[in-house]
């Protein structure tokens, strides 16, 4: 555990808490892509199946459970409790265009052709693109609430910090995982446009609004 990894995990945790609180406090999931949230639930489920097969640390176990519970809790709030507020007209990204290539890629490029390993690889590939329905929704409506922007910023920052973690681990521990690194770069790059808007607009107190 190094500082980049810890800050990355905390940023990730902050993102899921912001999202849950936003939905809970406003009693609304307006502006949130249910499709991205379904993909994230699939990501955590596929990756954290190792909860039952390998123990790493209390920290890892607790965080995994928190991410799983928060993710399914978000789905519950969006698709059951506050279903009426779900903006499905703007949430139209075809997720099969993300899921199927990730399945194929996971079957072709993995560290080991075993069920758990392929699921882990699939989750890494899928996580890298899971935010696209959300970004698509923001671009379609042309704006995002500030709280949604904070969520996206924290979520994007998390994998960016993991990149520094991997650079650190490469030098300090001789440890690297090319699948995670390349997917992590893709994931972080997808947020760049958003980061720019966040820094130039939201941090100056303005609403995130895309140029017409």
């Amino acid at each position: 555990m190094n500082i980049f990894r810890l800050l990355g995990d905390l940023s990730h945790l902050l993102a899921v808490i912001i999202l849950l609180l936003k939905i809970w406090k406003t009693r609304s999931c307006a502006g949130i892509s249910g499709r991205s949230q379904i993909l994230f639930a699939a990501v955590y489920t596929a990756r954290y199946l190792d909860l039952v097969t390998s123990y790493i640390s209390a920290y890892n176990t607790v965080m995994k459970i928190v991410f799983l519970v928060a993710s399914y809790g978000t789905l519950y709030l969006m698709f059951l409790k506050f279903k009426a507020t779900y903006d499905h007209n703007h949430d139209t990204f075809r997720i099969e265009f993300l899921v199927l290539p990730c399945v194929i890629l996971a079957l072709l490029i993995n560290h080991d052709f075993s069920a758990l390993e392929i699921l882990w690889t699939f989750s890494i590939y899928l996580e890298s693109v899971a935010i696209l329905p959300q970004l698509f929704m923001v671009s379609k409506t042309g704006e995002a609430e500030s709280i949604t922007s904070h969520y996206l910023f924290a979520l994007g920052t998390y994998r960016g910090l993991y990149l520094f973690n991997w650079i650190y681990r490469y030098y300090a521990e001789d440890h690297y995982d090319l699948i995670a690194i390349i997917a992590g770069i893709v994931q972080t790059v997808l947020y760049c446009d958003f980061f720019y808007l966040y820094i130039t607009k939201v941090l100056k107190g303005k609403k995130l609004q895309l140029p017409a």
Partner: peptide, 10 residues
């Protein structure tokens, strides 16, 4: 090099 199948990150 550590085993790739040992995933210790989140």
């Amino acid at each position: 090099l550590q085993s790739f199948t040992h995933h210790d990150e989140l």
